[in-house]
């Protein structure tokens, strides 16, 4: 197990306006969506994992926020799932195809897919997440323009595709291609302090996990609920948007979305959440 070292508590306190750090147990409840779909939100970690137990960010939110995710009607993220379904069935590009032209019914063809990404792409020689796979399909098969990062359609379609794996345990293949070396690079980045505040991902999400910075209950920072509906933005937030936001908040320059750095981080962070159910669209603060 790696530890992030001695934490810069003083720097944190200054930066966050925190006067004290308080620990609170994650909420001891079970997430069952619509009283039907039982979600795995606390699972025993693999032997080489830094935690004993992998816990979904759902447990760190207030009762009201947790309730929003437990009811698929109340969950505003489902609006974007519906929008994504429309895009799935819409013909675009020079080849006169929609996603459905090749992949038919997403409920069948995409079941479990979101749980297994990022995935090694031999042709590109790098891991692909859902967003990159969508763009490759658009360019190579549909003759359509790739989506720009965080275009509303990209977020909606990614949300729709990942939602087809709702409840499936996250399980990525690190044996394929060079995935292991991307995992290694992601791990390095996760523990590297950065920015004027000198914070690593691990500072908050491992070292201070379960404590509060200001009013924020620090989760383990798992990726299983992304894209996630954030109350703050009142919109879907992609994983790379959240990565960049976190890095920005350390007052560092942040890498481009889908850059090698952030793809490596996605591989590693997704691995840390293995075993948790895909929650897309999760609801967070």
């Amino acid at each position: 197990m790696r530890t992030p070292g001695i934490l810069a508590a003083a720097a944190l306190a200054l930066a966050m306006g925190a006067t004290s750090l308080v620990f609170a147990e994650p909420a001891d409840e079970e997430l069952v969506i619509d009283g039907e779909i039982e979600m795995q939100t606390r699972v025993e970690a693999a032997e080489d994992h830094p935690f004993d137990e992998v816990i979904s960010g759902w447990h760190y939110r207030t009762e009201e926020t947790r309730a929003l995710e437990a009811d698929s009607f109340a969950n505003p993220g489902m609006l974007y799932v519906e929008e994504g379904e429309e895009i799935w069935n819409t013909v675009e590009g020079s080849q006169g195809k929609s996603c459905a032209s090749c992949h038919d019914d997403a409920a069948e063809s995409m079941a479990g897919v979101g749980a297994s990404y990022p995935k090694w792409n031999e042709e590109a020689g790098k891991p692909f997440n859902i967003e990159l796979q969508i763009n490759a399909c658009r360019e190579q098969n549909m003759g359509a323009e790739p989506y720009k990062f965080d275009a509303p359609q990209q977020k909606a379609l990614t949300t729709f595709i990942k939602h087809q794996s709702l409840g499936e345990p996250v399980d990525i293949d690190l044996e394929a291609g060079e995935m292991q070396s991307w995992w290694d690079r992601g791990e390095d980045l996760y523990y590297t302090r950065t920015g004027q505040l000198d914070l690593a991902c691990a500072t908050c999400h491992e070292g201070y996990n379960g404590q509060y910075i200001r009013a924020d209950h620090l989760s383990q920072g798992n990726a299983n609920g992304f894209p996630t509906y954030r109350l703050k933005q009142a919109n879907m937030v992609s994983l790379h948007n959240r990565f960049r936001g976190c890095i920005r908040d350390t007052r560092a320059e942040f890498p481009d979305a889908f850059s090698d750095e952030l793809m490596a981080l996605e591989v590693y962070v997704t691995w840390r959440g293995e075993g948790l159910s895909v929650e897309t669209p999760a609801v967070r603060q």
Binding site: T62, E64, L231, K232, A234, Q285
Partner: peptide
């Protein structure tokens, strides 16, 4: 209403 709202943008 919640005693504490996690984000003021969306308070049930």
């Amino acid at each position: 209403a919640p005693e504490i709202a996690e984000n003021g943008n969306t308070v049930p």
